[in-house]
């Protein structure tokens, strides 16, 4: 069973060991409206209280930006959103390898083929990509690539950090959803299949009790293009379902980071993130 309407409460709390005089921040916490989900309500609150400036960035993500100029030793960003979920018939697109090589694909999706610091080029991965490419069509090879990632990485928190690249996580053999996503992107892009990073939430339980909040976490998965976009969750080793709530897409984590900022003072001594998902229907 899946929730049809979901309330998402996402609170980040930063504490500093010294007083912060000023800070400049951007948060990306607004679920997208897509054929699979509709944003019904959104509130973002920042403490200390300051005005928020919102805009849509290049990737289509809603950004809340703010700056604080009063001395503070904690910063809290709380977003609360309500999303209506719906199921869209999953198509199973596929293309030929030759059609991925065309100028049209590089024009439309070139950014999702480029390597980045989180998704670096790697000779060993290129070798894996080469052998997987021979297993069938791009669509089939992509599925094989994701199961390869699932076999190579073990889910473990604390083994990697926010700046770990997909390759570094692979070398350690352990990681979290961000690492699963980045390693998947390394391999898909090495196969010349356009692939992008997705951030959001996933409702973690089969049990849906209306009104009961469930603790959850920010989540990350990928989408790849084989004639159309296909969304998969490499951490779960499963397709993206109607329990996934999409917030942002980009080339890698840095395009979609939920909170980024720069501040005068500090340093940061603690960060606490709390995500709760509550089925409303």
């Amino acid at each position: 069973m899946t929730p049809r309407r979901l309330k998402i409460d996402h609170t980040s709390r930063y504490s500093y060991s010294g007083v912060v005089q000023s800070s400049y921040n951007e948060v990306r916490l607004t679920p997208l409206s897509t054929p699979c989900q509709q944003l019904l309500d959104l509130r973002v609150r920042v403490t200390p209280q300051v005005p928020l400036y919102t805009y849509i960035d290049y990737w289509g993500t809603q950004v809340h930006a703010f700056d604080i100029h009063s001395p503070h030793d904690t910063l809290t960003v709380a977003s609360s959103s309500v999303v209506e979920m719906s199921t869209v018939d999953a198509s199973e697109p596929d293309v030929t390898w030759a059609s991925l090589e065309t100028d049209a694909v590089s024009d439309d999706f070139g950014e999702f083929l480029d390597y980045t610091s989180y998704v670096p080029s790697d000779g060993r991965i290129a070798g894996v990509a080469g052998s997987l490419s021979h297993t069938g069509s791009p669509g089939e090879a992509a599925i094989a690539a994701l199961s390869w990632v699932g076999a190579e990485l073990t889910y473990k928190t604390g083994a990697t950090g926010v700046h770990t690249s997909g390759i570094q996580a692979w070398e350690g053999g352990e990681g979290v959803c961000q690492d699963f996503a980045h390693l998947s992107l390394c391999l898909l892009r090495a196969m010349k299949i356009p692939a992008r990073y997705c951030s959001g939430y996933v409702y973690p339980s089969e049990d849906v009790t209306v009104g009961a909040a469930i603790p959850a976490e920010s989540h990350a998965w990928v989408e790849y293009w084989v004639g159309d976009w296909v969304a998969v969750d490499p951490t779960a080793g499963a397709p993206v379902s109607d329990r996934h709530v999409l917030v942002a897409r980009g080339r890698d984590y840095s395009d979609v980071a939920p909170v980024k900022g720069i501040f005068n003072g500090g340093p940061t001594s603690g960060m606490q993130v709390d995500v709760r998902l509550t089925p409303l229907a």
Binding site: V162, N264, M271
Partner: peptide, 12 residues
């Protein structure tokens, strides 16, 4: 002069 930091979580 004041030190400056960047969230997440590099030393500033």
């Amino acid at each position: 002069g004041l030190p400056v930091g960047v969230f997440d979580p590099e030393p500033g």
